[in-house]
């Protein structure tokens, strides 16, 4: 509403007993946004190296995700096929149209049937990468884009995320820092349309405060953690 904007801003300023911020204070706010200072990082958000990966796996499993650790990209198809077979899940999946995933030797598992694109209502299994894994809470960070449709994280009952160990970060702040560095973008341009932090499968405690898994989102979140970066280095996999 046209009048409401000014009325609300003026009421706030009346409360603060001042007019619009003067140039100096406004510049200080803009500076704070550009510098986006980090605050205290608790110890759980400061792990490094192997300890960081260990924490990520431990927290993800504590939140009811499953994790398979494999040696390299070549082992991805086998790990996924084995996971689906063990749980009697369909071997047909919808996969993110992601360059790194496309280079994986899928032909090694001829029984896996993969379609590339966004998820539709009847897709049972999805395969994606993840922008990052956050060790602090065992959280996957998924960033939308042409190569990573958001529906893949939501519609299928089983979500398989392939995450390279080099993309495991210690904290939420470090995940943002990576995004800032890798995209070189700032401010309004920084975030893709959708960024999801996913910690384990969907759940609800709405009935008698008792946690049950698998409500609206995926019932199962499986993380395939790949030890070596593979070709293409660190840049892909978003």
């Amino acid at each position: 509403m046209a009048g409401a904007r000014e009325a609300i801003l003026n009421a706030i300023r009346r409360g603060l007993r001042r007019g619009p911020l003067d140039a100096e204070r406004r510049a200080a706010l803009e500076r704070r946004l550009v510098e986006h200072p980090s605050h205290l990082l608790p110890a759980i958000a400061r792990h490094d190296g192997a300890e960081r990966v260990r924490r990520f796996v431990e927290r993800a499993e504590a939140e009811f995700a499953t994790v398979a650790r494999i040696a390299g990209p070549a082992a991805v198809p086998g790990a996924i096929a084995a996971y689906l077979a063990q749980r009697n899940l369909p071997s047909t999946a919808v996969m993110a149209p992601d360059q790194w995933l496309e280079r994986v030797p899928w032909e090694d598992e001829p029984l896996l049937r993969l379609r590339k694109g966004r998820a539709e209502a009847d897709d049972a299994v999805s395969v994606t990468t993840a922008f990052a894994g956050i060790a602090e809470t065992g959280t996957l960070m998924l960033a939308s884009g042409p190569a990573s449709p958001t529906t893949l994280n939501l519609l299928p009952e089983t979500h398989i995320a392939v995450l390279r160990e080099s993309r495991v970060v210690a904290s939420y702040e470090e995940a943002w820092q990576r995004l800032r560095e890798e995209t070189g973008r700032v401010g309004a341009g920084l975030l893709p349309r959708n960024v999801m932090w996913v910690t384990g499968p969907s759940r609800s405690a709405d009935i008698e405060q008792t946690i049950e898994l698998g409500v609206h989102g995926p019932r199962r979140v499986h993380i395939v953690l790949v030890a070596e970066a593979g070709e293409g280095g660190d840049g892909g996999g978003r």
Binding site: A4, A7, I8, A11, E63, P97, G117, R118, T137, T139, S144, G145, P146, P149, T150, T151, L191, P192, R193, N194, V195, M196, W197, V198, T199, G200, P201, S202, R203, G217
Partner: peptide, 29 residues
Amino acid sequence: ISTYTTFSTGPRRPGDPDGPEEYHVILLD
């Protein structure tokens, strides 16, 4: 942390395979 923490920024971008075509924020006083 809750299972899902989601950051939404604007409508679907060029090349995005999914997401809403419009994004509105109602700022209520």
